[in-house]
């Protein structure tokens, strides 16, 4: 396996990043097993300090913080992943298509994307979400579409470079259709920059959802998610209680982990050696 060969020669930073991400995935997958209490179960007083019963204390409603964090990992990571994946499918598909077909279609699509990008994303998302409601599906769709504009720009640029290569011309001369060219000639060669971008975008989406939750338009209570948990417990800061720092720390932890892996991947694909 190529992956394991690469892993064997990976720098320490990449291994640390991988461990950080795996820890999160592990928590997300096994949340019901790890968590000592139920997701929305009220188990004690408000904002209790850390103890053996409540490892990270309790939140503003008296729910167990550690339990909330493990369940939150589940919601936050799954939604972020689904959103990023969807935005890449939409963005890359249209981006490749525009680059390969060229002409006025490319122009039209590019200008539409420019218009979408002209609005600040957060404001656009707030507006769209207040229209379509705040269900998880709506959240994923809205963010994916907004984010796909960035993916479109990248995949179009990458595909344009590949599109002028002679092997693509050879495929055209053979009479191949546009989707074959996109799938077999462009996509495999565009993978490295797209995967690297995927890692970055994943973090952005993740932070974006946290921001939306913080503003009350993201994942709705009582479902646990890290961004929402920061908001709910923010008041505790004024009392010198550091409960809100736990979910904030979890966000930072995962973001740093993903970025370490992305750095490693960028290094491999760009062929840079030190």
């Amino acid at each position: 396996m190529v992956f394991f060969k690469l892993l064997r020669h990976s720098p320490l930073s990449a291994r640390i990043g991988l461990a950080m991400v795996l820890l999160n995935v592990f928590a997300a997958l096994l949340a019901p097993v790890i968590a000592p209490y139920g997701e929305t179960e009220i188990v004690g007083d408000v904002w209790l300090p850390s103890s053996l019963d409540h490892l990270l204390g309790t939140d503003h409603l008296g729910r167990d913080m550690f339990t909330r964090l493990t369940y939150g990992a589940r919601n936050t990571i799954v939604i972020a992943f689904a959103t990023t994946l969807l935005s890449f499918i939409i963005g890359a598909l249209i981006g490749f298509f525009a680059a390969v077909i060229g002409g006025w279609i490319e122009l039209a699509v590019s200008r539409i994307v420019d218009i979408l990008m002209a609005f600040p994303t957060l404001i656009f998302a707030l507006m769209a979400l207040s229209v379509v409601g705040t269900s998880v599906v709506a959240l994923i769709l809205v963010i994916a579409v907004l984010d796909s504009t960035r993916v479109f720009r990248l995949s179009r640029a990458v595909a344009m470079d590949i599109n002028v290569m002679e092997f693509v011309e050879a495929a055209r001369l053979r009479g191949e259709g546009i989707f074959w060219v996109m799938r077999k000639e462009i996509l495999p060669n565009a993978m490295p920059p797209l995967v690297a971008e995927f890692g970055l975008r994943f973090c952005f989406v993740f932070l974006f959802i946290a921001a939306l939750s913080f503003l009350g338009l993201g994942i709705q209570p009582p479902t646990a998610d890290w961004g929402g948990m920061v908001r709910e417990n923010a008041g505790a800061i004024t009392f010198g209680i550091f409960t809100p720092l736990w979910p904030a720390g979890a966000i930072a932890f995962l973001t740093v982990g993903v970025n370490l892996i992305v750095d490693w991947f960028l290094k491999i694909t760009s062929g840079l050696k030190d």
Binding site: M165, E166, F167, E169, A170, L173, R174, G175, K184, E185, P188, N189
Partner: peptide
Amino acid sequence: TLQIMQMIYQMPDTALNPRQ
């Protein structure tokens, strides 16, 4: 008509898809 005419290029590096 496409089949009867084929092309070979100067640079074999760019004429072959590196991922095939």
